[in-house]
Each structure stands twice: as C-alpha cells, then as structure tokens.
C-alpha cells in the first residue's frame, strides 16, 4: 500500500515547482510535505485534525496546523500559496465543493488525488451486488470514511461547473499511469487545476 501511495506523491513532487509555497490539506504524517521540502525546497504548512499525525509532523520538523478542514480555511489569506494539495481526502469530506473553492481562494492552483470509483474492479463488484473494496478504497461500507466517492468523469464535470480549468490529469493503477480509458482502467486520479482566467 505504501509503495503505491507514494506514486501519487512522486507525481505531485514532479508537478510542484521548486521553491514554491505549498499548503497540504489533510497532510497525515507529513511525508509528502517533508519530501517536497527536501526535493523541491518548498515552504509551507500542513493541516491535520488527528493528534498522532500532528505529532508525527512535528517530529519531522514540518509546520503543521491542527484544524478541521470542514470548517474551511479561514485562517489562511487569499492567494497565499502557489499550490494547495488535497491528497486522498476529498472523498472523505462533507463540504466537497466548499473545500475546492477554498483551495483556489488561498492558492493559485489545486492538486487533488482521489480513488476513482469508476475503476473497472469497482464496477465489477457493484455489478456483483457488493460495495467495492480495493487497494485505494480498502474499507468496508460500514466503516469507511469515504462519503463522497466519485469517478474521474464526475470530478471533471464538477470542475467545469465551477469554472476550474484542469491543467493536468493522471490516473494511476498500481502506481502506473493509465492512458487508455482512464475512467475505466485507472484506480487513483491525480488532478491539477486552477480558476479559469
């Protein structure tokens, strides 16, 4: 799981320009931010709600702010970051549209990763009459934090509705980019987007 998880981090590390300012929402133990600081010399902050994750971040020497993303990003000023990252968290949020708008309020570009519900293995499980489980969605229906799952196409529709331009899109399966029928063959979606100018 960890090896695959790092693949979207690798992509993000390639996308983020050296020396930029980054806000990592739901930053977990701070692994991505630490890597961005070490390899891309970024500055910035993580936001987390979980005590153990905050502690792990402080141990890594990264800036982390304890807070609830559902409350928005009111503590952050407009346009104060080059990138705002939300990795594997969007699908767990109640205020999905709210957080996406907030991301592009405080940052110039947003980077989002989420498990693609349209992945064929998920579709097969639904056809078999079951809620899907996979490497990127490892939970049972009754204990999943995922409340707003979507497909690659769904996310693109939402971006269009809000006038977000998609700058880059990569859909991964087992850490490898899928170019053919990504909404069917891709398991984890990674998007970079900004406000239409």
């Amino acid at each position: 799981m960890n090896g695959i998880a790092r693949k979207d981090f690798d992509l993000i590390c390639q996308w983020v320009k050296p020396g930029s300012r980054v806000l990592d929402l739901g930053c977990g133990d701070g692994e991505l931010l630490r890597e961005l600081m070490d390899t891309r010399q970024v500055t910035g902050y993580g936001v987390e709600i979980d005590d153990a994750s905050i502690l792990a971040c402080v141990k890594k020497g990264i800036n982390v702010i304890q807070g609830d993303l559902e409350q928005g990003l009111s503590g952050f000023e407009n346009d104060s970051f080059d990138y705002v990252i939300l990795s594997r968290t969007l699908q767990t949020m109640r205020h999905t549209e709210g957080i996406l708008k907030e991301m592009l309020r405080v940052g110039r570009q947003g980077i989002v990763t989420f498990p693609n519900f349209g992945y064929w293995k998920n579709r097969v499980q639904v056809l078999q009459g079951r809620m899907p489980r996979s490497a990127d969605m490892p939970y049972q229906w009754y204990d999943t934090p995922n409340i707003h799952l979507c497909t690659v196409r769904d996310f693109e529709d939402l971006c269009a509705q809000h006038d977000f331009d998609i700058l880059e899109r990569v859909v991964l399966t087992q850490g490898k980019p899928v170019t053919l029928l990504p909404n069917l063959l891709g398991s984890l979606a990674v998007f970079r987007f900004e406000h239409r100018r």
């Binding site: 902050y45 005590d51 702010i65 104060s80």
Partner: peptide, 15 residues
C-alpha cells in the same frame, strides 16, 4: 497562528 501565517513565519499549532 493566523497572524503568524500572514507573516509567513514557520509555525505549528496543536489544539
């Protein structure tokens, strides 16, 4: 914390 963020200072906050 917000005032420190506004000044781009290194800051961590635990509640």
């Amino acid at each position: 914390v917000e005032a420190l963020l506004s000044n781009k200072r290194n800051v961590s906050y635990a509640e």
